[in-house]
Simulated assay, not measured.
Amino acid sequence: MKWLENLSNAIAYIEDNLEEEISYDEVVRIACCSTYYFQRIFSYVTGISLSEYIRRRRMTQAAFELQRTNQKVIDVALKYGYSSPTAFNRAFQSVHGIAPFVAKILVVN
């Protein structure tokens, strides 16, 4: 049961730092295990890699911000660690299936 608590704490750290650079060293310190072991267990439990989880969570948060704020797409891209609009657009489309500017104009009912 301690392992699940440590995993939960590590995920909480990731969630709290989606707008920042996430330290894998800090994640594994919180989880009390090696990087190799954590990444293997995380992938086993979630079905995706840790880096993919972080990328998807950032893209989800970016989509919410595009719809709920007046921020420009480039500002949201920079906030979530993308230095070019092209890279952000590509990542956003791979996760959501639409371009960021389309998400900005869509209204969720």
Rank of each mutant, 00 (worst) to 15 (best):
G81W: 04
R58S: 09
F42K: 06
P85A: 00
S51D: 12
P100D: 06
E15D: 06
I54P: 05
V108P: 01
Y36G: 03
K2W: 01
I22W: 12
E21L: 08
R57G: 00
S94V: 00
H96M: 07
V73I: 14
E52R: 14
S49W: 02
I54E: 01
V102K: 05
L4N: 13
A77F: 03
R90P: 00
Y13V: 01
S83M: 09
S94Y: 04
P100I: 05
Q39F: 06
A77Q: 02
F92I: 01
Y80H: 02
I30Y: 08
V95L: 00
A10D: 12
N89M: 09
V76F: 05
I98E: 06
Y80S: 07
Q71W: 06
K2P: 01
A103T: 13
F42S: 12
F101V: 04
I30F: 02
S8D: 08
S94Q: 07
K104H: 06
R29H: 09
F88R: 07
K2D: 11
Q61M: 15
A91K: 04
I41K: 09
L106E: 15
Y82E: 03
S94R: 01
R68N: 09
V28K: 15
V108E: 04
F92V: 01
R29P: 02
A99N: 12
S94T: 00
S34Y: 00
Y36A: 02
I54V: 13
Y82L: 03
A63E: 08
A10N: 12
E21W: 04
R68A: 07
G47H: 07
K79C: 01
V76S: 08
L66K: 04
I41L: 12
V45S: 14
N109I: 09
I105R: 10
L18R: 13
A87W: 00
Y36R: 12
G81Y: 10
